[in-house]
């Protein structure tokens, strides 16, 4: 029993950085921009969050820095794809190469200039980013552990997902955003400010990705700087967008499933003896299956926004 609870708790924690990346990517895709730069944006968020946390010793400031770092990286993407109408795939991939490179470069530089050859977040901040414990609630047996034993990131992630779900489903702006993602020309004709909307949502998405990046360095690596700290989670996040069929709320469940797939190897009895590679491959294989099934069944509701991947040039209408 306690094993199962431990597994669930670990799965939720392990899915959280993916959740942030996925939510950010959903924000991008909803306005019709497929961004393959999630990995890079998360890296930039990670390095921004880490460096500010290292200097200021404040968890909140570090989170804000991670958000701003991710948003700025996305701003670059938005400038190139929205205003300059550059190819989205190429811009996104460049952002990944650039972002991962920049994070490693800055990290290496800071490492060379640190006193003892390691970079570790100071005590105060590590205490703040550790598991939240709510007096009374966290002590309830089973339930306390299942619901109230996580790092602040987990709660921020779930709240963000719920808010985004509400935003895209129930608010006027959110519906406008979805209209842009499906058909920007029609949205423009209806008086929606397409360019402004795209910029805002892309930057918002980038900021959310950035927080996911901060998670990788603060929690997964326990606040010690290493190169390539995001380590491919950004790509799993892109996969999860498909798995969650472009819905922020379903992304919560999806991130839990993906997190479980990342954790299950540690809970399997050794006698079963499945190669760890199979566990690593599963998220992608399942995503591929979802992608194929949705396209075979042609479920419009559950597929990528129609204008995704193509840029909108107003005078071309």
């Amino acid at each position: 029993m306690s094993m199962i609870i431990k597994f669930i708790v670990a799965s939720i924690a392990s899915g959280t950085p993916i959740l942030f990346g996925t939510l950010g990517e959903i924000c991008h895709e909803k306005v019709g921009h497929l961004n393959l730069g999630v990995e890079g944006i998360m890296s930039i968020g990670a390095v921004a969050g880490f460096m500010v946390g290292y200097r200021t010793d404040s968890f909140v400031l570090a989170l804000i820095a991670a958000f701003i770092g991710g948003a700025l990286a996305s701003l670059l993407y938005a400038l190139l794809t929205v205003t300059f109408m550059a190819n989205q795939n190429v811009t996104g991939l460049t952002l990944t190469i650039f972002g991962v490179g920049l994070a490693n470069f800055i990290g290496y530089y800071a490492l060379q200039h640190s006193e003892n050859g390691t970079l570790k977040l100071p005590e105060n901040i590590t205490a703040q980013m550790r598991n939240v414990s709510i007096p009374g609630l966290s002590n309830i047996p089973v339930l306390g552990e299942l619901l109230f034993s996580y790092t602040p990131f987990v709660y921020i992630g779930i709240i963000t997902a719920l808010l985004l779900g509400y935003y895209y489903k129930r608010t006027k702006t959110g519906l406008n955003v979805r209209a842009i993602g499906e058909n920007p020309a029609a949205a423009d004709a209806a008086g929606i400010k397409v360019t402004k909307c795209k910029y805002l949502n892309i930057c918002l998405g980038g900021g959310i990705c950035g927080i996911g990046g901060a998670y990788t360095i603060m929690i997964i690596n326990k606040g010690v700087w290493i190169s390539d700290c995001v380590g491919g989670l950004g790509w799993i996040a892109v996969a999860l967008v498909i798995f969650a069929t472009w819905s922020p709320v379903k992304a919560i469940l999806g991130s839990f499933v993906f997190g479980a797939l990342r954790q299950i190897r540690y809970y399997m009895p050794n006698s079963i003896g499945i190669s760890t590679a199979i566990y690593d491959m599963l998220p992608y294989a399942i995503t591929l299956l979802v992608l194929v099934v949705t396209s075979v069944r042609m479920v419009r509701e559950k597929s990528q926004p129609a204008a995704c991947g193509t840029n909108y040039f107003r005078e071309d209408r």
Partner: peptide, 19 residues
Amino acid sequence: LSEAFASVLQGIILFFVLG
């Protein structure tokens, strides 16, 4: 300086050319 400088430079070049 980190070897990642190559990636950074490649990125900058491509951003400018895309623009």
